[in-house]
Amino acid sequence: NQASVVANQLIPINTALTLVMMRAEVVTPMGIPAVDIPRLVSMQVNRAVPLGTTLMPDMVKGYA
């Protein structure tokens, strides 16, 4: 099973992602693959992402 990107903290809307905000976890359903974490750094979320939420492609501006 491939790990997905999960929020390590509450990420407010329009926040630029940093490594500290994300962790890799095997979850269902799968979200953004953990291998993409370096690519996500400095991209912004388009909604508030609660702690423990799996990041989906439509939550990150410019990802999809």
Score class of each variant (00 low, 15 high):
V27Y: 03
L55F: 08
A48Q: 11
T54N: 02
L17M: 10
G52D: 12
M22P: 00
A48G: 10
Q44Y: 12
K61R: 10
V45A: 08
N1C: 05
M59A: 12
R47D: 14
A24W: 06
Q2P: 15
E25S: 05
T54A: 08
G52P: 00
M22V: 09
G31S: 02
A7C: 06
D36N: 07
Q44D: 06
T18P: 00
K61A: 11
M56C: 14
S42E: 11
G31P: 00
K61Y: 08
M22A: 01
A3L: 08
M56Q: 14
A3Q: 07
V5T: 05
G52M: 07
L40K: 00
G52V: 02
V41F: 06
R47H: 15
L19K: 06
K61T: 11
V41R: 04
A34E: 15
I37Y: 02
V45C: 06
D58V: 10
E25A: 07
V45T: 13
M43E: 06
V41M: 07
M56S: 13
A24C: 06
M43R: 06
L19T: 10
K61I: 12
V49L: 12
D58G: 11
R23C: 10
Q44P: 13
N46Y: 11
M59G: 04
A48H: 12
Q2V: 14
P12C: 07
V60I: 14
L51P: 09
A24K: 06
S4V: 03
P29E: 15
P33F: 03
A7G: 03
A7E: 00
T18I: 05
V6E: 02
P12L: 10
L17G: 01
V41P: 03
N8V: 10
N8T: 15
V45E: 00
T54Y: 02
A64Y: 03
L40H: 00
P29C: 15
V35S: 13
P38G: 10
L40V: 08
G62I: 04
S42P: 03
P12T: 10
Q2F: 11
L55G: 01
I13T: 13
T54E: 02
R47E: 15
M43K: 12
R39N: 06
Q2I: 13
T15I: 08
T18G: 05
V6Q: 04
V6N: 01
V26N: 08
G31A: 03
N8K: 10
G62C: 09
P33K: 07
G52I: 02
V41H: 08
V45P: 03
P38L: 05
Q9K: 07
P33E: 11
L10W: 07
T15S: 06
A24R: 03
M30C: 15
M30S: 13
T28L: 04
M21D: 08
A24E: 14
V6S: 05
I11V: 12
V20P: 06
L10C: 15
P57H: 10
I32Y: 02
N1D: 15
P57W: 08
I37N: 00
V27F: 02
V20K: 06
P12I: 05
L10D: 14
R47W: 06
A34Q: 11
V49C: 04
D36Q: 08
P29R: 03
V41S: 04
L10P: 09
T53Q: 14
R39E: 04
P57R: 05
P38S: 12
G62R: 05
A34I: 08
Q2R: 03
A34N: 06
M59S: 07
A64Q: 15
M30Y: 12
A3N: 12
P38I: 04
N46S: 14
L51C: 15
L10N: 13
M43L: 13
G62M: 13
N46R: 08
Q44A: 08
M22L: 14
A3D: 15
R47M: 13
T28P: 02
G62Y: 09
S42T: 06
Q2G: 15
I37K: 04
R23D: 09
Y63T: 05
R39V: 11
L55H: 01
P57D: 08
P29N: 15
V35W: 09
R23E: 06
P12A: 10
Q9L: 10
P50Q: 07
L51Q: 09
V27N: 03
I13N: 09
A16I: 08
D36H: 08
M21F: 07
M30Q: 12
V26F: 05
P33I: 09
R39D: 04
T54K: 04
T15E: 08
P33L: 07
T28C: 15
G52E: 12
T53E: 08
P57A: 13
M43C: 08
A3V: 08
S42G: 12
V60Y: 01
A64S: 15
A3H: 14
T54I: 15
V27S: 11
L19Q: 06
V35C: 07
R23M: 14
V5M: 02
D58Q: 10
T18Y: 03
Q2T: 12
T15R: 08
P38C: 07
V35A: 11
M21T: 03
N14D: 10
M21E: 02
A64C: 14
T15V: 11
V49Y: 02
N14Q: 07
P57I: 06
P12Q: 12
M43W: 08
L19C: 05
M22F: 07
P12H: 12
M30L: 15
V26P: 10
V41L: 12
N8E: 09
Q2K: 03
V45S: 04
A16L: 09
A64G: 15
V26Y: 08
T15A: 09
M43Q: 05
L40E: 01
T15K: 04
V5F: 01
T53R: 08
Q44T: 14
V5A: 07
T53W: 12
R23L: 11
P50R: 09
V45G: 01
A16V: 10
P33Y: 10
R23I: 09
L19S: 09
I13W: 07
P50M: 11
V6K: 05
V26M: 13
M30R: 03
I37H: 02
A48S: 09
P38A: 13
V5S: 04
P29Y: 12
R39I: 11
M56G: 14
K61E: 13
T28K: 03
D36L: 04
D36K: 03
V49D: 01
G52N: 11
I32R: 00
R47S: 08
N8M: 07
T53P: 00
L51Y: 10
M21G: 03
D58K: 08
V20W: 09
V49N: 01
I32G: 00
D36E: 11
I11R: 00
R39T: 13
S42I: 03
Y63S: 03
E25R: 03
L55W: 01
A48W: 06
P12N: 11
Q44F: 11
N46T: 14
I37T: 11
E25T: 04
E25P: 00
L10Y: 07
Q2W: 14
V5K: 00
N14E: 11
